[in-house]
Structure formats: structure tokens, C-alpha cells
């Protein structure tokens, strides 16, 4: 296996809400290899965005990193001074967000915004940055780059704005791209266009991608490996193949069962009962136990560790082997 580009170890993040605290990330460890596309899947509040955004120093002010390391090429991002982190962010690590309209500067020409990232990081001089911006716009499938350079974000459609965001993120040729729900706000045909573009860029540049998504269809079709987060913990981590063929965590199975796909008119629905915990206390037992059909006394009293049940297949469930063997 290739060397880890980013290695997150035992990350713990807490938010202070005044009257109480939210334990958003509770000991998350994983790594992203060079050239790998990793899918980070979970529902709202699972910690999927917070995990990576904390590593990048991009969490809200009331968020505190309580423990852990996040080593990018061996250097701990969590110990860096803001200036050092700013150097890496946007140059070595590109980020794209769900809503390009709120991430782009509404009063700045899009061409200048793409150039800005190259100039800030001294990736290129003015002339070169301008040429590269036109090249990027072309690569992103934006017609008439020269004319469009001078347009403002509101003059583009949602899909085109997301292409501009990607151009900014890729401008300095990052080794890692963090894509936080990049297609969630887009229509399906546009989602397909954006994912095709990301896949092409990834192949061309040998870039790693961390794809944060709630959509199993996106994750399984795009990523090499998948992490399922719930209540700020990794429930399951597996190659996409294992994930598809042998999910071993009851939450993963429940989620997969919750997805209605084309051609399922006659199927019975079997929703996961209840809802996600509020996270106002650190987990002391399995966070999924109250919704789990297989939960036992042990699940309600003892926190399951993330363990490797077969090569590269990690599950945080006391009964993973039984679940896998359909013994229960």
C-alpha cells in the first residue's frame, strides 16, 4: 500500500455551546494514501465534515481540538501556526464545498479568484497565473474561458460555479483534494458532470481525494475505500468492494437498506428506528445500540473498539463477526 499522505490519529473535537458541550468527533483515526479516493460517509452530525475541517483549522470558534494528530506528509497540521497552515491549505490541500455561491467572492471576477490562489501561494507569477487560469477554465469545461474570466459568480449556473470552485482548488496542483458534499446541491445530470470532471482530474494529476458525502451511490461509484461515521466515530472502514459485498456493521447495513433505488416499487421498507444521539456526552457504550436490532447488554455498557476483522476491514461492533456470518 502506498504511503499515507494524510494520517489522522485519535482526533477528538468538542464544541462549546454555552449551556452544554457537543462531542462531535470522538477518537477518529484513518489515513489517506497517495492517489487514493476515500469516501467519508455519514448523516448530519456524524462528524464527517468536522473531522477534516478541524485538521485544516477550519472549524468554528467554539470548536476545540481536544486530542489527536493530523499528519500531512509527516507534519502535524494541528501543531502548525496559522501562517504555516495557510501555506498548505489551498496549495498542497485544495478544498471544495457544497455551496459554491457562499464560498466564492460575489464581488470579484471569477478569473481573479482563480489567479488569486496561485498568486497568494506564489505558485506562479501574474502572467503565468493568467495563462494557467484560462487553461484551468478550459479543463473544467467552461466554454469561452477568455470571456468568462471577467464574469462574476452570479453570472454562472450552480454547476458552472462548482466548476470554478474546483478550478480554484486545483490551481496550485494540490496532492490532496477535500471535497465536502461537492454535488449535494446539484441536479443529477450536473452531479454526473462534476464527478466525471473530478475523476478525470484525479487520474491526470495522481491526486488523492477525500470525498465527504451522505450519498452511498456517490461514494461507492467514486471511491476506493469507504469510512462510515456515526456519532463522531468510525463505525466501519473498508475497501469499496468489501463494503459492497460484506458490510459488517449493523448501522452500515441499516443505511444501505434505507436507500430506495430505481426498480424497487414492490419492496418493503425497513427504516432504522429512532434517531442519532445528541452527543452532549462522550460515548461510553456503542452509540448505535439504541437503534440496533442486534444490541445486547454488552453493547449498552461497553464501547466497541474499531478492530480489523479481516485484512483492511475495520468495524466497531461487538457482534461484527456474527453480523457478517448472518448468524443473527
Amino acid at each position: 500500500m502506498a504511503e499515507a499522505l494524510l494520517a489522522i490519529d485519535d482526533l477528538r473535537v468538542q464544541f462549546d455551546r454555552g449551556e452544554d458541550e457537543v462531542f462531535a468527533v470522538n477518537g477518529v483515526s484513518f489515513s489517506i494514501a497517495e492517489g487514493e479516493a476515500l469516501g467519508i460517509v455519514g448523516e448530519s452530525g456524524s462528524g464527517k465534515s468536522v473531522t477534516l475541517m478541524s485538521a485544516l483549522g477550519l472549524i468554528r470558534e467554539n470548536g476545540k481540538i481536544m486530542a489527536g494528530t493530523a499528519k500531512f506528509q509527516g507534519h502535524d497540521l494541528l501543531k502548525m501556526r496559522p501562517r504555516q497552515l495557510e501555506d498548505i491549505r489551498g496549495r498542497d490541500i485544495g478544498v471544495i464545498f457544497q455551496d459554491p455561491m457562499t464560498s466564492l467572492n460575489p464581488v470579484m471576477r471569477i478569473g481573479d479568484q482563480i489567479m488569486e490562489s496561485m498568486l497568494t501561494h506564489q505558485y506562479a507569477g501574474r502572467r503565468e497565473a493568467f495563462e494557467r487560469t484560462l487553461q484551468l477554465l478550459h479543463e473544467m469545461g467552461i466554454p469561452e474561458p477568455k470571456a468568462r474570466f471577467r464574469n462574476y459568480p452570479h453570472e454562472f449556473s450552480g454547476g458552472m460555479r462548482q466548476r470554478i470552485m474546483i478550478a480554484i482548488a486545483l490551481a496550485c496542483e494540490p496532492q490532496l483534494l477535500i471535497a465536502d458534499e461537492p454535488t449535494t446541491a446539484l441536479d443529477v445530470t450536473v452531479q454526473m458532470q462534476i464527478l466525471a470532471l473530478l475523476q478525470e482530474q484525479r487520474r491526470k494529476k495522481q491526486m488523492s481525494i477525500a470525498m465527504i458525502t451522505h450519498d452511498f451511490g456517490v461514494a461507492t461509484n467514486f471511491c476506493d475505500r469507504i469510512i462510515v461515521l456515526y456519532a463522531g466515530q468510525i463505525m466501519e472502514m473498508a475497501d469499496t468492494r468489501q463494503f459492497l459485498l460484506q458490510p459488517a456493521h449493523p448501522y452500515t447495513m441499516g443505511l444501505k437498506n434505507s436507500i430506495i433505488e430505481i426498480g424497487q416499487r414492490d419492496r418493503q421498507l425497513s427504516p432504522i428506528p429512532g434517531m442519532a444521539p445528541t452527543l452532549t456526552e462522550p460515548p461510553k457504550s456503542c452509540s448505535f445500540a439504541s437503534r440496533c436490532p442486534f444490541a445486547t447488554e454488552r453493547c449498552r455498557s461497553e464501547l466497541p473498539a474499531l478492530r480489523e476483522i479481516s485484512p483492511n476491514h475495520h468495524v466497531a461492533c461487538h457482534r461484527a463477526e456474527e453480523v457478517l456470518a448472518h448468524a443473527i
Binding site: S157, G159, M160, D187, V188, T189, V190, Q191, M192, Q193, L195, A196, Q199, D215, F216, G217, V218, T220, N221, F222, D239, T240, R241, L244, L245, K256, I259, E261, I262
Partner: peptide, 23 residues
């Protein structure tokens, strides 16, 4: 065709081919 279904196996993944143009 634009709906990404979960494939049965990793080698049955959908090709990410997109329709041209925008609405």
C-alpha cells in the same frame, strides 16, 4: 442514467459519463 446506484460489486461500478450541456 444519471442516478448513481450502489453497484453490487466494485467491478460493476457505473462509468461516470455525463450528458452534455446544461439546462
Amino acid at each position: 442514467q444519471s442516478i448513481l446506484k450502489m453497484p453490487e460489486d466494485a467491478d460493476k461500478r457505473q462509468a461516470l459519463t455525463s450528458i452534455q450541456g446544461e439546462i
